[in-house]
Design a protein around this nucleic acid. Structure first.
Lengths: 174, 174
DNA sequence: ATATTTTATTTCACCAGTGAAATATGACTT
DNA sequence: AAGTCATATTTCACTGGTGAAATAAAATAT
């Protein structure tokens, strides 16, 4: 049975009831937030499902993909934290785990001894090149009935929301 | 500085580079997925930020809100798991924590002794009614520059994606 | 040249979440 | 009536994530 759409229907009912009790609640916006969070959770679950056979989780995968996408295949824990929206603590743990699997290496920085240089290995690159293609059909299938205009619209609306979230964020205000 | 939009820019570059190495990658769809995940993460962070003064996390809040929105203010752990997309293990922990704070109660079911009835308390209702209004301005601000058509479009596209995810999900296929 | 502040990463102890197993109960089959 | 299977929840041991503190190094101020 259709779980996510069911949950969405129940969420709609719940928001409807709460907005009757608290009429000043911005129900349309609250509902959009909730919908975003639910779809996001489901996307994450779908990604973790695809990664499971490779014994990777989302964070491992993202870290590896960031390194793979770099021209020189390297970065630092600090940069990886920023790109992957992870804490330093956790990036240490993630990189430890990937080093252990021989997918990346950890080295000293020539210009700053505080820094660590993380680099994807040849085995890591092969691992990514092997892992990605089987994921493509399901990624395509998620948007099977989206027109080009739909995709552009979704992109525009999400980017706009991202910009608004940046304006709000207390953590990044100067 | 604008963190999320910066990460998005870097993600765009990364996807561009990977799609040059692996031309058969559905880059548009991969980018939309990644964008969804990033915006979702940021929404979650924004929500956790709003909840922090109340010493609640997202799961506690959602569980409490589901109970608050029910006509009779009650549910079972099994139902709560379904609505909140949580495991049974974690729902035990979440409900234990909310019981401890006096926001909900745990009782026996009259018709099925395997079941537990979770009910929001008067204190829990007051807590919700006090907690929600200060959240409204920032919820509204997230969509400050969205037209009504934008909101309807976002809703339509997310619902469509949700439906596609349900079609894909191996966990719920009959 | 020295002291102070800032930055980068790791370690530690903890929190939120999970899968497997245990327990109790209800439904179904024989 | 008894046995088997399914359901609901909790417990246990673990994983992935966090904030605070520790450590080392670089930048800045004096």
């Amino acid at each position: 049975m259709a779980r996510l759409t069911n949950c969405i229907a129940m969420m709609n009912e719940g928001i409807e009831r709460v907005s009757q009790i608290i009429p000043q609640m911005p129900a349309v916006e609250a509902r959009l937030c909730r919908l975003m969070l639910m779809v996001g959770s489901s996307l994450e679950e779908e990604l973790e499902f695809k990664l499971k056979p490779h014994k990777l989780n989302h964070s491992d995968f993202l870290t590896l993909m960031i390194l793979y996408s770099r021209p020189d295949g390297s970065s630092t824990p600090g940069e990886l934290c920023e790109f992957a929206t992870q804490g330093a603590t956790n990036m240490t743990r993630i990189t430890n785990s990937l080093v252990k699997r021989g997918l990346i290496t950890r080295g000293a920085s020539a210009e700053d001894r505080r820094r660590v240089v993380i680099r994807i290995t040849a085995a890591g690159k092969r691992f990514v090149q092997k892992m990605l293609p089987p994921m493509f059909p399901r990624v395509g299938a998620m948007f099977a009935d989206f027109s080009d205009a739909d995709k552009r619209n979704l992109s525009r609306l999400l980017s706009k929301l991202a910009h608004n979230l940046d304006q709000l964020d207390p953590g990044t205000q100067p």
